[in-house]
């Protein structure tokens, strides 16, 4: 019900200190694999404000998933800072919900059991079952609550994955190419739903994606990463009003230039500003 946080428009694009500290702060972050042989991320700077929706795009293997894993507390980092709410990340946090590629549901659990999983583990005993039912309701899964994942379409599976990420009511949602495996039309519908859920919940979202149109459709900002070692090539503000819709967004005056610039940045064809 919360309107889209207006602070997004006021957010400076450069890491110039704002009044409220950013919820997610990444400063000069380095990460390498194989004992330093493979540099995955190099000097990443990125601040994300509370309630903001940031899309991250980059070529395959640029380390965008690594960036997400660091924020999720699943991987460590070699240099720089990564902090949530001013606290350096040392491991998984209760403030973070992760939406994985291809849903990653447990096949031996029903839809409801999958959504309830975060309330059963990690010292989070019991929990509010009305939250489960409410989430199933808003994502249209109530009638499928007793079904098993293999009985669901890919789009529905990922809706379950999103509900599961939201059930602990985290402040931050990290999404790792969640709709990559879906067909184009399902993907558009999921984008619309995700926008609605985000606008209702006021969560802070970082979305990793391959799709330029998805990045623009959902993001308040689009962060473009370079090929490995990943660094931030550019941050682009998307000032297209919400709620956005799949038909009108392409006809918005600033859409073509945005899409073209992101594509050029990704393909390395010079930078047409």
């Amino acid at each position: 019900m919360n309107p889209n946080p207006p602070m997004v428009d006021a957010m400076p694009l450069s890491p110039e200190p704002a009044a409220a500290p950013p919820l997610i702060h990444i400063g000069n972050l380095d990460k390498s694999f194989a004992g330093g042989a493979v540099q995955a991320l190099s000097g990443i700077d990125l601040d994300i404000a509370e309630g903001e929706f940031v899309s991250v795009v980059g070529p395959s293997g640029c380390g965008k998933s690594t960036l997400l894993r660091i924020l999720a507390g699943l991987d460590g980092y070699d240099g720089g800072t990564a902090a949530l709410g001013g606290v350096p990340i040392t491991g998984p946090s209760r403030e973070v919900g992760v939406v994985f590629q291809a849903a990653n549901l447990l096949p031996w659990f029903t839809v409801r059991e999958n959504v309830a999983l975060p309330l059963r583990v990690g010292g989070h005993k019991g929990g509010n079952s009305e939250n489960i039912e409410a989430l199933l309701e808003i994502s249209g899964l109530t009638d499928f609550a007793a079904r098993y994942p293999y009985e669901l379409s890919g789009g529905m599976q990922q809706r379950v994955g999103i509900c599961r990420a939201l059930v602990r009511n985290p402040r931050i949602l990290l999404m790792d190419e969640p709709f990559g495996a879906l067909d184009a039309l399902t993907r558009e519908r999921m984008n619309l739903e995700l926008q609605r859920i985000w606008q209702q919940s006021g969560k802070t979202v970082m979305l990793i994606t391959h799709s330029i149109s998805e990045a623009i459709f959902l993001g308040d900002r689009v962060v473009v990463l370079s090929p490995r070692p990943g660094r931030v090539l550019r941050e682009l503000k998307v000032d297209i009003p919400r709620p956005r819709n799949n038909d009108t967004i392409i006809s918005h005056p600033s859409y073509p230039a945005l899409a073209r610039e992101i594509r050029h940045l990704l393909t390395g064809q010079g930078e047409d500003a």
Partner: peptide, 10 residues
């Protein structure tokens, strides 16, 4: 991925 899921949930 399933182990990642469980780790992300502490």
């Amino acid at each position: 991925e399933r182990l990642d899921l469980m780790r992300s949930l502490s």
